[in-house]
Design a protein around this nucleic acid. Structure first.
Lengths: 158, 158
DNA sequence: ACTTTATTGTTCAACATTGAACATTATGGG
DNA sequence: CCCATAATGTTCAATGTTGAACAATAAAGT
């Protein structure tokens, strides 16, 4: 049976991907620790960053960008609103959608959190040359496009 | 304030890392879908793969390899044992430790699951040249080492 | 205009994950 | 031998995440 099925760790791409996944997981846990001083967690940071860039985005769009379900946003955003980080206002044209905005407090927290995250990334990737970073990003974006294409196919065929 | 704090998405390494994180997240969700046919989830696969490679590993060691807490293993492993995928036997020398083994059924599921994961990775990385994969893996392993070193420092200073 | 279909957000139950407190067993120093 | 400390695994409460069912609104088809 082993002759028909070569072991995964013999595949170079498999080994590479395992390294990627481990690095991501570790990065996430370190980021969690470092964000604790601001009393937020990585998912909150992702939300703050996206609101920082895209003021007035809807919950749906935000969920799609973050690759999470709508229900996730429905659970998380009200908490952040209560903490005074964001604001939700109904859209005038379409009464279904809620548009999201940073409060001044939220903007401050976002900036501090982004500084922490940027420092962590710069520190971790400092020994990786820029061209290598770019090549990596390109590979990753190809993966994202490929997998998203698969998802679309699947949902269309359903 | 924006003059003092350049926006994160202007940092090339930041952008690169965001791409990595997104790819990981998507890969994870696709893998979750594809493993559904075997009625297991990515965490179970990680466990099976490690038991496949390292027969008789302890729960503690396994948790460390997977970067999760001991309690996680205490919750998950009994479930897998009930499903007949693994077996837990006490160590003769040290009555505290439980050593983990795959059942024949678990071995079969592990092989099928690894085939699925390998196929997914090969497919996703097929357009990325091997040398690029290797370079990526090297960068990621450096990150892992660097972050783990940080963790050690921190736990030692505590 | 009316009915059907799609979209947006919410709720809820199921499940996963975590960290702290705990019990048991080992190890080391008196 | 006895006590203090450490290591291993378990339990539990708190929290996060998901998908399905639902309500309200919009868009499209008739």
């Amino acid at each position: 049976m082993n002759k028909n099925q070569p072991l995964p760790w013999d595949h170079p791409r498999f080994r590479s991907w395992v390294a990627v996944a481990r690095a991501c997981q570790l990065m996430q846990s370190v980021l969690t620790r470092e964000l604790a001083s601001l009393d937020i967690k990585p998912p909150h940071l992702d939300i703050l960053v996206n609101l920082y860039r895209f003021e007035g985005i809807s919950q749906q769009e935000l969920a799609r960008k973050l690759l999470v379900g709508r229900s996730n946003m429905s659970m998380t955003l009200p908490q952040m609103e209560k903490r005074g980080l964001i604001e939700r206002r109904g859209d005038a044209k379409d009464k279904r959608v809620l548009r999201l905005y940073l409060t001044p407090e939220g903007r401050n927290v976002a900036e501090e959190a982004m500084a922490i995250q940027t420092a962590l990334i710069e520190r971790s990737l400092s020994t990786t040359p820029i061209e290598q970073c770019h090549a990596m990003a390109e590979s990753m974006e190809k993966i994202v496009l490929a997998l998203q294409a698969e998802n679309v196919e699947e949902s269309e065929s359903a």
